[in-house]
Simulated assay, not measured.
Amino acid sequence: MPDMILRRPTVQLRTGLSRSAIYDAMAKGKFPKPIQIGTRAVGWAESEIEAWLEARKAARAA
C-alpha cells in the first residue's frame, strides 16, 4: 500500500497537537518535516507520523 500524504488538519487529529505545537516541534527537530506537494501546500508522510506516534508510545512505556 502506498504511503499516503496527510494534510495538516489530519495530522492534528491524529497527533492531538495544535498547528503551532506541530511547527514548534518541527523547528526543534522533534517532529517530522513536511513534504512540499504544491506551491502553497504541504503534507506529511503517513508512515513518518505513525512512526512518531509509536516513538511517543515507546517513550511512555520506558
Rank of each mutant, 00 (worst) to 15 (best):
M1P: 07
M1R: 07
M1C: 06
M1T: 10
P2S: 14
D3A: 05
D3L: 03
D3T: 06
D3H: 04
D3S: 01
M4I: 07
M4S: 07
I5F: 04
L6T: 00
L6R: 00
R7L: 10
R7I: 06
R7E: 07
R8L: 15
R8P: 04
R8S: 07
R8G: 01
P9S: 05
P9I: 04
P9A: 02
P9L: 02
P9E: 05
T10E: 08
T10Q: 05
V11Q: 01
V11T: 00
V11R: 01
V11P: 00
V11H: 01
V11I: 02
Q12P: 00
Q12V: 06
Q12R: 05
Q12D: 01
Q12L: 03
L13K: 08
R14Y: 00
R14N: 01
R14F: 02
T15W: 04
T15N: 04
T15V: 08
G16D: 08
G16L: 08
G16Q: 06
L17V: 07
S18T: 14
S18N: 10
S18F: 11
R19Y: 10
R19T: 11
S20N: 13
S20F: 10
S20Y: 11
A21N: 11
I22N: 02
Y23H: 04
Y23F: 04
Y23C: 00
D24N: 14
D24L: 12
D24A: 15
A25Y: 12
A25F: 12
M26F: 00
M26Q: 05
M26I: 14
A27V: 07
A27Y: 06
A27I: 07
A27N: 08
A27R: 12
K28T: 06
G29N: 06
K30P: 04
K30G: 13
K30H: 15
F31A: 03
F31V: 09
F31S: 02
P32R: 08
P32Q: 13
P32G: 12
K33L: 12
K33H: 14
P34M: 03
I35W: 05
I35Y: 05
I35S: 01
Q36K: 13
Q36A: 06
Q36V: 05
Q36G: 03
I37V: 12
I37Y: 01
G38V: 11
G38T: 09
T39R: 09
T39Q: 11
T39V: 11
T39L: 10
R40C: 01
R40P: 01
A41E: 05
A41H: 05
A41N: 06
V42F: 06
V42T: 15
V42C: 09
G43R: 02
G43M: 00
G43V: 03
G43S: 01
W44H: 02
W44G: 02
A45C: 14
A45N: 15
E46P: 03
E46K: 06
S47E: 15
S47D: 14
S47G: 13
E48A: 15
E48S: 14
E48C: 13
E48N: 15
E48P: 09
I49F: 03
E50T: 12
A51Y: 06
A51Q: 11
A51T: 10
L53N: 09
L53I: 14
L53P: 07
L53W: 10
E54I: 11
E54R: 13
E54F: 07
E54K: 15
A55Q: 15
A55D: 13
R56M: 09
R56L: 14
A58I: 05
A58E: 11
A58T: 09
A58D: 07
A59R: 15
A59W: 13
R60I: 11
A61Y: 08
A62P: 09
